[in-house]
Nucleic acid binder design. Structure first.
Length: 776
DNA sequence: CCTGATTTCGACCCC
DNA sequence: CGAAATCAGG
């Protein structure tokens, strides 16, 4: 899955050579288990694949698609394969290219949101939109809601725009129009609900006027389109004669309905999912969609994949034990042939710094003694806020790492500003973008002027951008009115370039002509330098995409910018430890995994405290985390943690998570304050005792005294070997292994490493800053 | 009326 | 710690 595997590389080469000859149906089921094969070969009706973690579902899905082609049961353009993340989609495309060659490019293999944005864009006229659609992301929607609330003098403290946005989002996911929402189905009543309903209604009106759609519209609007225009539904249902959906357990009502609308006639629908991995309830995923699939399609064939090809038995046993505490689930038990494996480590830290320090020391050990590459190590946490301490400690310890899914490049302010210009050029109705760029760079059009322009636009039924030309009439000062006129002219001129320039050139032109460039250059701060750099990077990356032939138009670029999640980014293979939330981790796998912060209140999160359903979801999240690990799994918790509390912030005691107690003791080794001081048992004890540089600076195995302070003061001390300036051929002496010859070196500073050949123990990869090494 | 500086407040998970 | 509300000055 993760793509680092060697056999994948060879697979690629192999595929390139073999690409000319399509695989036969027989070849496509080679090496599959009986249930996997059944899933690949099933024909003629609905298919539900219940796929446990690590049971090879991507493999089955891609083989099934290839098989459909090979037997002539489907043409490439008839395939719609839906995933939840771009990352998963890209991976699927890659594998399909290996299996069926370039024909894969004619299939629709993408996320729900992308597929239905395309359909919505193509059919927007039917729904009455007058311009090309602009996609509003969460922050755009929030701005619009905030603006509406401001106009209505609603106190943003009593009702937050975020809260309102959340309510509207849920309503849309459940296919509730403003009218239906207002009625409330008897459950929700009262003035507060009424106000939310009014806001929802106005929000919809404004979105429509701006020719804009939000994320939830990408699902809800197509449902409405298909309901109102049967011929549109039939067109797409006929075109996509084979619909396959991954991660079906995380679909919401709208997504479920879309699948049904597209497939209810031909019934060639294949959904894959694992109810134990449903973790998106908070964004309206409804686990019943998968549980009720068989009642929706009574003739559905069900295939259950229970053999896990990823983890050791101990890891699976732990996962099974935890998830078995969920009452509402279909029982299934994963098994593996990967062997027992080593025990899991449970580490009880003093506080979060100690936790981080221990993890850092373990990572060093994993890579040094067990030669686990850094990019095969991952660290998960429940909330993004937990990442900071971990990062700080990793910086101190010199552990190369990357945060996945934290901040999106496209969310940086300067990037959004620039893209807002382009959005406005493409869609003059776009209110949010117009409001955003009107005073970027500073032109002397402040809040008061913007409000007046907004009022004027509303009164005279024109767009906000159009109102810029009527600043004087709208009551702006002469200076502001003039500036407004200039913006309008600037937009006219830039709109000219739209047809003439390539996307990257257009961005560069906007960057320059808008004055954003000049303003940033004038500022001369570290901050502005970084912004300039980011925008340069943006333009360069677009130019690169053009050069690669990967970008047709600026519209396409905006679409991908809007639909790219933070977690989709850079598949760089550099050796770094990955840090991410448990949600982002779904679908990934690593040789070694750390799940951190297993404490009551954090994981399970306190918001799930009184709700059994939410608690079960937290448990599924734990299940997801555990099952990401192939060989090594450590679970950590801290006794005290710095928290942002209701009454101020400070350290407070943290109880170990109930999920820890749910793991049978005999699967684990307990370390730190929670247990006896013993060395970690990952790998052989030999490895541990052999560690020549075990100077006691690390914290594992220490009694509870105050491990955190030790961890803090004694960041890994260096052996000094990284400063020897070693190169291949040098002869060195290792304290334990004696004389050896340097074969190669890599990295620098704290991460400088060398491959050294010793007489007795053979070749070793050494991290120089810790290896007790000297020149001979 | 705009802008830059200062204060305040708030924080779960995401396509 | 960072974004948004608020304040003081031009």
């Amino acid at each position: 899955m993760s793509g680092f595997d060697q056999h994948d590389l060879f697979g690629n080469l192999h595929a390139a050579v073999e690409a000319q000859r399509p695989k036969t149906p027989q070849e496509l089921v080679e090496g599959l288990t009986a249930p996997q094969r059944e899933a690949v070969e099933h024909r003629g009706g609905p298919l539900l694949i219940v796929a446990g973690a690590g049971s090879g579902k991507t493999r089955v899905l891609t083989r099934r698609i290839a098989h459909l082609l090979a037997t002539g049961d489907a043409q490439p353009h008839e395939i719609l394969a839906i995933t939840f993340t771009n990352k998963a989609a890209n991976e699927m495309v890659e594998r399909l290219v290996q299996l069926v060659g370039d024909r894969a490019k004619r299939m629709w293999v993408m996320t729900f949101h992308k597929a239905f944005f395309r359909i919505l864009q193509a059919e927007s006229e039917r729904l009455g939109y007058r311009s090309r659609l602009t996609l509003y992301d969460d922050s755009d929607s929030r701005r619009l809601i905030q603006e509406i609330m401001r106009e209505r003098d609603i106190d943003p403290k009593k009702v937050t725009p975020k809260g309102v946005a959340g309510k509207i989002s849920l309503a849309k996911a459940n296919l509730q129009t403003p009218e239906v929402f207002a009625e409330g189905g008897g459950f929700y009543q009262g003035p507060f609900h009424q106000m939310t309903a009014d806001l929802y209604s106005e929000y919809e009106r404004r979105l429509f006027a701006a020719s804009a759609v939000d994320f939830d519209d990408l699902l809800m609007k197509p449902v409405m389109l298909f309901e109102r225009f049967e011929e549109a539904r039939l067109y797409y249902a006929d075109r996509f004669r084979h619909v396959l959906v991954d991660e079906f357990q995380d679909t919401n009502r709208a997504q479920n309905e879309l699948v049904f609308q597209l497939t209810r006639d031909h019934r060639q629908v294949c959904v894959v999912g694992d109810s134990d991995q449903s973790i998106y309830r908070f964004r309206a995923a409804d686990i019943r969609n998968i549980l009720d699939f068989e009642s929706t399609f009574p003739d559905a064939e069900v295939v259950v994949l229970e053999q896990n090809f990823r983890s050791t038995q101990r890891i699976l046993d732990a996962a099974n034990a935890v998830i078995s505490n969920n009452a509402s689930r279909v029982v299934k038990n994963l098994f593996t042939q990967e062997g027992e494996g080593t025990p899991l480590t449970v580490y009880g830290a003093g506080d979060e710094r100690d936790e981080a320090a221990w993890i850092a020391s373990e990572i060093w050990r994993l890579q040094r003694d067990l030669e686990v590459p850094l990019n095969e190590i991952a660290l998960f946490y429940r909330t993004n806020a937990q990442s900071r301490v971990l990062e700080e400690e990793f910086n101190r310890a010199g552990i190369p790492h990357r945060l996945i899914g934290a901040t999106r490049f496209y969310d940086r302010r300067e990037v959004r500003d620039l893209l807002s210009y382009v959005r406005l050029l493409l869609n003059p109705d776009d209110e949010v973008s117009a409001r955003r760029i009107i005073n970027v760079p500073k032109r002397g059009i402040g809040a008061t002027s913007v409000t007046r322009l907004g009022q004027y636009a509303a009164q005279h039924q024109m767009t906000f951008a159009e109102a810029l030309r009527h600043g004087a009439d709208a009551g702006l000062t002469a200076k502001a009115a003039k500036a407004g006129l200039q913006v309008a002219e600037l937009l006219d001129q830039l709109r000219h370039d739209l047809l003439l320039l390539r996307p990257s050139e257009l961005l560069a032109e906007v960057f320059h002509r808008s004055g954003i460039e000049a303003e940033l250059q004038a500022e001369q701060s570290v901050e502005s330098a970084s912004r300039l750099e980011n925008l340069g990077e943006l333009i360069n990356s677009v130019a690169q995409m053009e050069a690669d032939g990967a970008l047709e138009s600026i519209e396409e670029f905006l679409e991908s910018a809007a639909l790219t999640a933070a977690s989709d980014d850079l598949d760089d293979d550099r050796p770094k430890v990955s840090l991410m939330t448990l949600h982002v981790a779904k679908g990934l796998e690593y040789k070694a995994v750390f799940v951190t912060g297993l404490e009551e209140g954090i994981f399970p999160h306190f918001s799930a405290r009184d709700d059994e359903d939410q608690l079960e979801e937290e448990r599924r999240l734990a299940y997801v985390g555990i099952t990401r690990a192939r060989q090594f799994l450590a679970l950590t918790h801290a006794e005290r943690r710095f928290k942002f509390g209701e009454q101020g912030s400070g350290y407070s005691a943290s109880l170990p998570s109930r999920f820890l107690a749910e793991i049978p003791e005999d699967l684990t080794v307990r370390l730190g304050t929670a247990g006896m001081p013993r060395p970690s048992r990952w790998g052989s004890d030999d490895h541990y005792f052999e560690r020549p540089d075990d100077d006691g600076a690390r914290t594992f195995g220490r009694p509870s005294a105050s491990p955190s302070f030790q961890a803090r003061r004694k960041a890994p001390s260096t052996s000094g070997a990284e400063n020897l300036g070693l190169s291949a051929g040098d002869v060195v002496i290792h304290e334990r292994w004696g004389e050896g010859t340097v074969i190669s070196t890599s990295g620098s500073g704290d991460m400088a490493a060398a491959k050294v050949k010793f007489g007795e123990v053979g070749e070793k990869n050494l991290l120089l800053s810790v290896a007790p090494l000297r020149r001979s």
